[in-house]
């Protein structure tokens, strides 16, 4: 019974957060364009209806199976992220003593599904987007591994439930100030946003989605927002104490923190500029990766 309730609650939250994220995106776009948007809350619905009613155009000899698998897989990985997150003490849909590593597995599978999405249409720009994304997506994932291990140190456990409990006195965002910013960069990469959008960016005319049309396009965009929700929930649990908080019930706190992280990610994705791939590689390997080592060392010293 409680499981059914939890699943229903998560789905309700998922739909609400997808809609909120799409609205926020529309607002940001209007604000940057300088004109504002007319009724931004309905823009996502209008766009969705447009895509649904569009004809599906295909390229010559596409890999149809992998196109479908990539969309479904991206969606599923976001859901798994959401299901790994504890919504109360010892309450989570996927109870696993190594849930942080499982989230790491989700991150690496995201690279695979985005690559497949770029591979499947049999088109050059999409494949370039996929290649670029792999080049950036793999090193940025290494960075998140160190950050997550650092967060696991004070909890002495790889279980997200224990990591949340370990933050009852002080949140990890204060204990490990480097952690959350680095992890949010990973979130930008996982959801193909802003400075880390090397897959679906405008300079490739849409990258891996350049040939996606109709329901496929809608599915892919929704899957991106599902992944955004899953990532935000994990980030809120690892760094902002998840369901912990006074007065309000735990799940509500989790929802508030998730939406807060989501707002930050969306804001950054519209405000930061994208660098050339080679320079971004340099920044990741020379700048950000040592920072994540530093984060891990500091966390280790603190845990001793």
């Amino acid at each position: 019974m409680i499981v059914v309730l939890a699943i229903l609650g998560l789905f309700a939250f998922l739909i609400a957060s997808i809609w909120a994220a799409a609205t926020l995106d529309a607002v940001c776009r209007g604000w940057i364009a300088g004109g504002g948007t007319v009724s931004p809350a309905f823009t996502p619905l209008r766009t969705a209806a447009l895509w649904l009613s569009q004809q599906r155009l295909t390229t010559e000899a596409p890999d149809r199976l992998n196109a479908l698998l990539s969309i479904a897989g991206y969606f599923a990985l976001g859901l798994v992220g959401l299901a790994l997150v504890p919504i109360g003490p010892d309450t989570t849909l996927i109870a696993l003593p190594t849930s942080v590593v499982a989230w790491g597995a989700c991150e690496s599978l995201v690279v695979v599904v985005v690559f497949l999405h770029g591979w499947s249409p049999n088109a050059p720009l999409a494949l370039i987007g996929a290649y670029r994304y792999v080049a950036i997506g793999l090193p940025i994932m290494l960075l998140s591994m160190f950050v997550l291990i650092a967060a696991a140190l004070p909890a002495q456990s790889l279980d997200l439930r224990d990591i949340v409990t370990s933050q009852s006195s002080v949140w990890n965002v204060i204990r490990q100030p480097l952690g959350l910013p680095l992890f949010i960069l990973l979130g930008l990469s996982l959801t193909l946003r802003g400075p880390f959008d090397y897959a679906d960016s405008a300079d490739l005319a849409g990258g891996t989605s350049v040939e996606a049309s109709g329901p496929d396009r809608l599915g892919w965009q929704i899957a991106r927002l599902v992944m955004l929700t899953g990532f935000s929930a994990v980030a809120a649990s690892v760094f902002l104490g998840g369901y912990l908080g006074p007065v309000l019930p735990g799940p509500l706190w989790l929802a508030i923190k998730t939406l807060a992280i989501m707002t930050v990610v969306i804001g950054l994705s519209h405000l930061l500029a994208r660098m050339p791939v080679a320079r971004m590689m340099g920044l990741i390997w020379i700048g950000l990766l040592p920072l994540s080592f530093l984060d891990l060392i500091l966390a280790g010293v603190l845990a001793l």
């Binding site: 000899a61 890999d63 696993l96 003593p97 190594t98 590593v101 499982a102 790491g104 597995a105 690496s108 599978l109 690279v111 695979v112 690559f115 049999n122 494949l127 290649y131 792999v134 793999l138 994932m141 790889l158």
Partner: peptide, 30 residues
Amino acid sequence: DYIGVATVFMMAVEMMVMGLFMIMFMMNPA
């Protein structure tokens, strides 16, 4: 618990790299 999840994690990365090499080196990757 660890071996199982780590296998998924490692192999996703390894096979991704393998896929790139496939496209690079095979005459007829698709």
